[in-house]
């Protein structure tokens, strides 16, 4: 290895370290702020460690602090029912993911493994949805939900995405097309009907891509902001992302409780970070895979 190559590798490593630092530092900063005393923070804003370490912000975020305690640490009067918002996010993202993955898998099986008249035409029509950005259907879908009387309900939040996802169907169909015929044919000759083949053979063989889609759909829905913003109007069904934004916007700009807000943010991001710890490798590989297809 000559000098210029060594130099090149050094520069490359340096670049990588900077990129990683910029990527990760905000996460550290959330933690650092969430463990600081909101009053004390203004006296030492550049301290890399929590200022006047306290669990107070988490107590405020979770609604466990008394008004006196909150005031003493610079908490504002604004509150956020984090437990309720967390529950709403779980219901919203959980149910939507469940429905869309199951229904997409059933449709993908019909498109990939069954022979029927009109199959390719129907598939082609469904795929047109990939070309249309969601922004165009959001407003009319809002009007539809209003007509159906589903505003401010889980039904209104979940229904539009529950039955149909062009990407999920396409992704699973691609995988199912690649499955070998042998097991399936053996089962058919054994007298198994198409439904039996679907539930007993093809779906069990497709568990890995279905898990990937579950993960990706759950993350996207958990982080979704625009649709819940349109269809909800009070905290009874409001998911976390929206609750956080509302909390920030309703706080007075001058004396924002950054420590409390960062604690709430951390609670909101925690489920995603846990998913990352458990499934990080699968996620990285699946992102790569969705690109190659």
């Amino acid at each position: 290895m000559n000098l210029s190559m060594k130099l090149g590798r050094g520069v490359a490593w340096g670049y990588l370290v900077v990129v990683l630092l910029v990527t990760i530092f905000p996460f550290y900063w959330i933690v650092r702020t969430a463990l600081s005393n909101n009053f004390a923070m203004s006296t030492d804003p550049s301290s890399l460690l929590p200022v006047d370490f306290t669990w107070g912000p988490f107590k405020r975020a979770l609604g466990l602090a008394t008004p006196a305690e909150a005031a003493a640490e610079g908490g504002s009067g604004a509150s956020i029912d984090l437990a309720l918002a967390l529950w709403n996010s779980i219901v919203y993202a959980g149910l939507l993911t469940l429905f869309t993955v199951v229904f997409s898998a059933l449709a993908a099986y019909a498109f990939a493994r069954l022979h029927w008249k009109g199959r390719d035409v129907v598939f082609g029509v469904l795929l047109t949805a990939l070309m249309v950005p969601s922004v165009f259907t959001l407003l009319p879908n809002f009007v539809l939900m209003k007509d159906l009387g589903l505003l401010n309900s889980f039904g209104g939040m979940i229904l539009p995405g529950a039955f149909f996802s062009a990407f999920n169907i396409f992704f699973l169909r691609q995988f199912m097309l690649g499955l070998s015929n042998e097991v399936e044919e053996a089962a058919i000759i054994d007298g198994a009907g198409p439904l039996r083949v679907c539930f007993r053979i093809v779906l069990p063989m497709s568990v890995a891509p279905m898990a990937t889609l579950t993960l990706l759909t759950f993350i996207t829905t958990w982080n979704d902001y625009f649709w819940p913003l349109l269809v909800t109007n009070d905290e009874s069904v409001r998911p976390l992302t929206l609750a956080l934004a509302v909390f920030k916007q309703s706080s007075p700009q001058a004396s924002l409780d950054w420590a409390g807000l960062m604690a709430a943010t951390l609670v909101a991001a925690l489920p995603m970070l846990l998913l990352f710890v458990v499934f990080g490798r699968r996620l990285v590989n699946s992102i790569g895979f969705t690109g190659i297809k």
Binding site: Y109, W116, V122, V125, L144, G161
Partner: peptide, 22 residues
């Protein structure tokens, strides 16, 4: 017959929450 049954939820979703709103 089975194929249409399996595709039905997706078609419903496509029709009601995509094509019609569009």
């Amino acid at each position: 017959w089975v194929a249409w049954l399996l595709v039905a939820p997706a078609l419903l979703g496509f029709g009601v929450f995509f094509a019609y709103p569009m």
